[in-house]
């Protein structure tokens, strides 16, 4: 469920006047999706999943249960063997700039500066130059990369690189952003900072986020909704709605009783799958 857009951050020229999407409008739908990388071994069978406009949905589940596969299908990198993946009611036919992806590894363009990386998506959009510059500048501030605009990826730390990757996908305002364990490779401190920035960005930019992680804490801190996938063939084992005090990015949320309650709950459910 989309949070009401916060007014605590004023750097909001990233979006046109924020229109609150209808709370239950579906943006991505998987219906009866069956998929395997080879026909002999299926990974997903009859998976049905709906992602709503603007929501932050996280997939949890044991390793190899098909989380990345679901992201690949939604991104349009693969086609389902049976069933349908839809975006705004239309079948997904291939990769599109309407569905952003943040990869786990380093997918930055090493030959471009931070600024050029972030502005890359704008090359293919017809915005005025000024508008593009404005948006790039705003997002660079939001992810705290001021001063590094002219640096190249090899000059950045792992955390900063991931910030660039997130900013690059976010700045073109995809209707959904797919993130596959984006923060898995950074240290805990940096990771917490990145999570808070991501939540702030999510408030500024209206799209939905589909997030994959192995960390229950990360899932609870970030998500509006958490789906736990089952071990066999990507069945949905459980679904949890998370409601924590606004603004969601306050670090205090990490130590609240409500947070601990969710965490315990989810932990036991994950244990039950084994």
């Amino acid at each position: 469920m989309p949070r009401p857009s916060s007014t605590s951050l004023s750097a909001a020229n990233l979006t046109e006047p924020y229109v609150q999407p209808a709370a239950d409008k579906e943006i991505i739908g998987l219906s009866q999706v069956t998929f395997g990388y080879s026909r002999k071994r299926l990974v997903l069978q009859d998976l049905t999943l709906s992602i709503r406009q603007g929501e932050f949905l996280t997939l949890l589940g044991p390793s190899g249960c098909g989380k990345s596969t679901i992201l690949n299908l939604i991104a349009g990198f693969y086609k389902p063997l049976a069933g349908l993946v839809t975006h705004g009611g239309e079948p997904v036919k291939g990769p599109s700039e309407r569905r952003g992806v943040v990869f786990q590894g380093n997918a930055l363009f090493d030959w471009m500066t931070v600024e050029q990386n972030i502005a890359f998506g704008f090359r293919f959009q017809s915005l005025s130059k000024l508008e593009k510059q404005q948006k790039v500048k705003t997002i660079i501030q939001l992810v705290g990369l001021q001063g590094s605009e002219r640096k190249y990826p090899y000059q950045l730390s792992g955390g900063m690189r991931q910030r660039v990757a997130v900013a690059r996908s976010m700045v073109v305002q995809p209707e959904i952003l797919l993130m596959d364990e984006p923060f898995a490779a950074v240290d805990v401190q940096t990771r917490e900072g990145l999570q808070e920035e991501l939540l702030k960005l999510h408030e500024q930019v209206s799209g939905a986020i589909l997030f994959v992680t192995h960390s229950i804490e990360e899932a609870v801190f970030l998500s509006d909704r958490i789906v736990i996938l089952d071990r066999n063939l990507g069945g949905i084992y459980d679904e949890t709605l998370v409601q924590l005090p606004e603004p969601r990015y306050t670090p205090m949320n990490r130590v609240s009783d409500a947070f601990n309650q969710y965490r315990t709950d989810l932990y036991l459910k994950m244990k039950a799958i084994g």
Binding site: A75, F77, P95, S96, E97, R99, G100, V101, F103, G105, N106, A107, L108, F109, F120, G121, R123, F124, Q125, R168, S169, V172, P174
Partner: peptide
């Protein structure tokens, strides 16, 4: 050329 970089460009609208 890493496949991820190509896919990243594609999801950013590059043809």
């Amino acid at each position: 050329c890493p496949k991820q970089k190509i896919l990243a460009a594609r999801t950013l609208g590059a043809k």
